[in-house]
Each structure stands twice: as C-alpha cells, then as structure tokens.
C-alpha cells in the first residue's frame, strides 16, 4: 500500500493514509507534516506525554512505506551512539585471519571501510537509499544535553558527516526529520528556528473517541463513550499531578474490554484506575463517584451526532 511518490501528497491524502495506519490526524497535524515534507524542513513536535508525538513518525514511515530510523536521546549521547563506531572485534578477527596473507597497508585500507563500520541512526539516515526518503525520528531531544543539540543543528544544516578514515558522507536522499520533546528542558532557539513547530496537547472529546474506536477494535459504543468522557473530565481535575495521555486512555479501554466490561461503575473504575493514573497520590485524590455521575449525566445524545466519523 502506501504512497507511490511524494508528489502525490496532499493534506487530505495524509489524513486519509494516516487513518489507514490507525492514526487520527486532524488537519493541523496533517498540514504540519505536509509542509515538513514539501519544504524539506525538520518538524519539532512538543507536547504533553502520551499524546502521539512518537507515533506520528512511526505512522509516517509506514504510510510512505519507508524505513524508520530512530534515535532515542539520553544524557551523554555521543558520536559512537549517534553516528558510527568501528567494529573493533570484527576488525581484530579479520586481522588475525589475514595475517601473512596481505600486507599491512592493504589490510588497513580494508578494515577501515564501510564493511567494518557500525552505522548508528544519523549515519543510517544519510546512507538510506530508496524511492522514498527515510523518516528520521529524533525522540525526546530534551533528554540529550545541549551539546548534542548543537551538533544536531549542524547535521540538519549540512546532512553530512565526516569520518576521518573514510571521508565525508553526504545524504543520498534527505530524510524526513521528526524531532520530539517533552519539554523537561527548553530546546534552544537555534534548533527551533530551523524546524517547523507543532504542539500536541490532549485531544478534544470527539477526536479521542475516534481514536479509541479506531484502536480498540470491537469496543462497544457505550463503553468507548464513557471511557473518553471519564478521561476528559479527569484531566480537568486540579488535583491530578500526572494527567493521563491518549496512551493511558487506550490502555484503559483495552483493559476494560478485555475484562468484558460493558459500562463503567464506581467499583470497576476503582479497580482499574491504576491503568489510568500512575501515582498513588493521584489515585487517592480522585473522587470517582462524582466524576462518574457527571459522565453518566452527560452521556446523552448531544455527543452522538459528532462522534460518527
């Protein structure tokens, strides 16, 4: 499936294709992606945890039927984990094998060639060759230190790296770059300026309902509606420290469906609340009965007409 060429891409088409990959993209998301691809600019996605940042890159690569290259960031990220590393054991082995058979110069040239190179994500992205560009996901950049950010800025400007033993490697095809951040650290101005920017927050009720129905196949209409309504109201509670994201909603819906539950009751909610809320403080602070009463009160026909899509 997927798309045959990037030229076919339109905003409508992106929405459609992403839906096929089980991702509900509103027009804003689709437009941001469309522009990132057309203008060949990286897309920086910030937002609340569990609201589909990482998923966008995955879905995009599936939809374009191309390789997803992921660089998971952490503190102390370095060249050997982002670009390349020589495969020393393999080199040693080769040297042993070839001892006496080849002269040293020949050998050196050989062991410092692409064959002995361990390619890390950024290098992989440069070497990717296919009808479609690769999708390079730089996940949770806020966890990497500022130094890496500086390096990344250069990388994104040039799309090339230099390996002393081999020379400069330039991108065969510029990858589509998606950078995500959870804002545990503010990302520098420079990087922001280079990227297009999208902020993802908790979805509105109708969108979340669509996501649940799409992802949790076979869930009853009623349960889906109640689950979403409950989560929506829960997020508005001032006492909740870690608000549930879409991923928590989905986990909860899956769990409830697996338990064969048809509708929410206080007992059911209390027993399964730990799926939705990760801290015991938060769980204690929720007035399940009160929220549930509101959910049941709301669950009328008002929402039905909009939820269809």
């Amino acid at each position: 499936m997927g798309m045959q060429a990037l030229e076919e891409l339109t905003i409508e088409r992106i929405i459609e294709e992403m839906a096929k990959q089980l991702y509900v993209a509103d027009r804003e998301i689709a437009t941001a992606l469309y522009l990132a691809i057309r203008l060949e600019k990286p897309l920086l996605i910030e937002g609340e945890p569990g609201c589909g940042k990482t998923e966008i890159a995955k879905v995009l690569s599936d939809m374009l039927d191309t390789e997803l290259i992921r660089l998971q960031c952490y503190e102390g990220l370095d060249v050997s984990s982002t670009i390349y590393e020589w495969n020393y054991p393999k080199q040693l082995l080769y040297i042993k094998m070839m001892e006496g058979k080849k002269n040293p110069e020949e050998m050196e040239e050989e062991i410092f060639s692409e064959k002995f190179l361990l390619k890390r994500p950024l290098l992989k992205a440069l070497l990717h060759d296919g009808p479609m560009p690769a999708v390079l996901l730089i996940d949770e950049i806020d966890r990497a230190d500022e130094e890496f950010e500086g390096f990344l800025l250069e990388f994104l400007a040039e799309f090339q790296v230099t390996i002393p033993e081999i020379g400069t490697i330039k991108a065969r095809k510029k990858p589509i770059v998606i950078i995500t951040s959870n804002r545990t650290r503010e990302i520098g101005e420079g990087l922001r300026r280079r990227c297009l920017y999208l902020y993802l927050t908790y979805p509105p009720r109708e969108k979340e309902l669509r996501i649940v129905k799409l992802k949790v196949s076979g869930i009853s209409d009623r349960l889906a509606r109640e689950v979403v309504e409950f989560v929506q109201r829960l997020r508005k509670e001032p006492d909740i420290f870690k608000k549930p994201g879409i991923s928590e909603t989905l986990d909860w819906a899956f769990a409830l469906k697996a338990l064969g539950i048809e509708e929410l009751t206080p007992e059911v909610v209390k027993e399964t609340l730990s799926v939705l809320l990760k801290s015991s403080d938060d769980i204690r602070n929720v007035n399940v009965e009160a929220i549930l009463a509101e959910v049941k009160g709301y669950g009328g026909d008002g929402g039905d007409s909009q939820a269809g899509g």
């Binding site: 905003i11 027009r27 437009t31 941001a32 469309y34 522009l35 203008l39 920017y197 999208l198 902020y199």
Partner: peptide, 23 residues
C-alpha cells in the same frame, strides 16, 4: 506557496508552524 490559499485554516496552520516556535 505550496498550500491552497483559499483554505483559511491551512493558511493559518502554515503561518503558525513556520513562525510560532514554542508553545
């Protein structure tokens, strides 16, 4: 240049993602 200028919401998003770079 690459979007449909008659669609208000797309113009809006296009300007937003290119000019507004933080929450």
């Amino acid at each position: 240049k690459v979007i449909d200028l008659t669609r208000h919401e797309d113009v809006y998003t296009a300007l937003k993602v290119t000019l507004a770079k933080s929450r």
